[in-house]
């Protein structure tokens, strides 16, 4: 565990907390993509199956349980409790266009052809693109509430911080995981346009609005 890694994990946790607080306080999930949330739940469930097979540390198990349970809670809030506020018509990204290529890619490019390893690889690939329905929703409506922007910024920062962690671990421990590094870079690149808008607009107190 190094500082980049810890900061990345905390940023990830913060993103989830911001999201839940936003939904709970405003009693609304307007502007949020339920499809991205379904993809994230799928990511955590397929990645953290080793929770029942391998014990790594209390921290590791605790975070895995938190990520799985909060993503399921978010889905419950969006599709059940606050269903009436869910922006269904704008959330029209076809997630099978992401899931199917990730399934194929994980079957072809993986480091071990075992059930757990292929599912882990699938989750890494899927996570890198899971935010696309949310970004698509923002681009469709042309704007995002500040709180949604903070959520996206924290969520995007997490993988960017992981890249620093991977660089550090490569030099400090000789540890590297090519699949995770490659997908993590793709994931971070997808946020770049958003990061730019966040810094130039949201941090200056303006609403995130896309140029027409």
């Amino acid at each position: 565990m190094n500082l980049f890694r810890l900061a990345g994990d905390l940023s990830h946790l913060l993103a989830i907390i911001i999201l839940l607080i936003k939904i709970w306080k405003t009693r609304s999930c307007a502007g949020l993509s339920g499809k991205s949330q379904i993809l994230f739940a799928l990511v955590y469930i397929t990645r953290y199956l080793d929770l029942v097979t391998t014990y790594i540390s209390l921290y590791n198990s605790f975070m895995k349980v938190i990520f799985i349970s909060t993503s399921l809670a978010t889905i419950y809030l969006m599709y059940s409790k606050f269903r009436a506020t869910y922006d269904k018509n704008h959330d029209s990204f076809r997630i099978e266009f992401l899931i199917i290529p990730c399934v194929i890619l994980s079957l072809v490019i993986n480091s071990n052809f075992t059930v757990l390893e292929v599912l882990w690889t699938f989750s890494i690939y899927l996570e890198s693109v899971a935010i696309l329905p949310q970004l698509f929703l923002v681009s469709k409506t042309g704007e995002a509430e500040s709180i949604t922007s903070h959520y996206l910024f924290a969520l995007g920062s997490y993988r960017a911080l992981y890249i620093l962690n991977w660089i550090y671990r490569y030099y400090a421990e000789g540890h590297y995981e090519l699949i995770a590094i490659f997908a993590g870079c793709v994931q971070t690149i997808l946020y770049c346009d958003f990061f730019y808008l966040y810094v130039t607009k949201v941090l200056k107190g303006k609403k995130l609005q896309l140029p027409a």
Binding site: D9, D50, T54, N60, N165, H175
Partner: peptide, 10 residues
């Protein structure tokens, strides 16, 4: 991954 192929990252 450690020597048993376990992943310590999240």
């Amino acid at each position: 991954k450690d020597e048993f192929g376990n992943k310590d990252e999240l």
